[in-house]
């Protein structure tokens, strides 16, 4: 069985940042592997280690900079990677439909049996690409999976979906399927030094729009960011000032007023 894991390099914003137009200043962004995708990679690599998956391929949409991040997936055990990017999409907001356009072409070529994605990307948090991709490519799907047992012979994935309020749904999903992976599904490994060395020799194939059979007109999205701003703080918290000793002393008073007793 072949497993495809979609990964995204996400932008993280520090405590202080500037907004320039409808974007955050590039110098205030730090890039990292999307947290949810880390769990998806781990799930894929474990399927390989358990002898269920023959090959684990990481797939990303991202500029050249994101190769550093996708190499993390390779260092953790993915066999090879595919990166899709084109200057024509560099400046636009990539909506779900456009991402699915780009992913679909690679899925058609790779013909995986199982696609693992993170539930959402930490930066724009749409939480929709995996399920939309499943619909496009005709796979079954399950969203927000926090437990996975794959029965390759029976052609089903037994999953738990993490619903709200501490309730889990136990579901049997026909394979081929797209599963969107929730944090906590497993314990993602750290890349070993050996893994990092090996990752340098693994292949990252790059594809532009023409390679995936699309034209710039095909990837004109329906969504445009028209403004970005810091939400006004609604805080009316009383901030307790002073050094740690003073602040803790005052806080202890407040806690006692509220009925905390030791």
């Amino acid at each position: 069985m072949k497993v495809l894991v979609t990964v995204k390099e996400v932008a993280e914003v520090g405590d202080d940042f500037a907004i320039e137009g409808t974007e955050i200043a590039e110098s205030d962004l730090e890039y990292d592997l999307n947290e949810w995708d880390d769990y998806a990679i781990e799930a894929g690599v474990r399927l390989a280690e358990d002898g269920i998956a023959d090959e684990v391929v990481a797939l990303t949409i991202g500029p050249e900079r994101s190769e550093e991040t996708i190499r993390m997936a390779l260092a953790k055990g993915a066999d090879r990677a595919v990166r899709v990017w084109d200057d024509a999409i560099a400046d636009s907001f990539l909506d779900v439909d456009t991402k699915v356009d780009l992913l679909e072409a690679v899925v058609d070529e790779e013909e995986p049996d199982l696609v693992l994605t993170g539930v959402q990307a930490a930066d724009d948090a749409f939480g929709a690409t995996g399920v939309a991709l499943a619909e496009r490519i005709g796979f079954e799907h399950a969203a927000v999976v926090n437990d996975l047992e794959l029965d390759a012979d029976a052609g089903v994935a037994n999953v738990r979906r993490e619903l709200e309020g501490g309730v889990e749904e136990l579901t049997e999903v026909d394979v081929p399927a797209v599963l969107t992976v929730q944090t906590g599904l497993n314990e993602p490994r750290y890349a070993s030094l050996r893994g990092i060395r090996q990752a340098q020799r693994k292949e990252i194939a790059t594809k532009d729009l023409a390679d995936v059979g699309l034209s710039p007109d095909d990837v004109e999205g329906a969504l445009t960011v028209t403004s970005m701003y810091e939400p006004e703080s609604e805080s009316d918290a009383e901030i307790i000032e002073g050094d740690a000793d003073e602040a803790a002393g005052r806080l202890a008073e407040v806690l006692r007023e509220k009925g905390v007793e030791a």
Binding site: V13, I24, L223, T226, S227, M228, Y229
Partner: peptide, 15 residues
């Protein structure tokens, strides 16, 4: 909607 873990809000025009 919110982006970057609630650090900013964005408005999106939908075609």
């Amino acid at each position: 909607r919110e982006q970057y873990g609630s650090k900013v809000e964005t408005t999106l025009a939908v075609e």
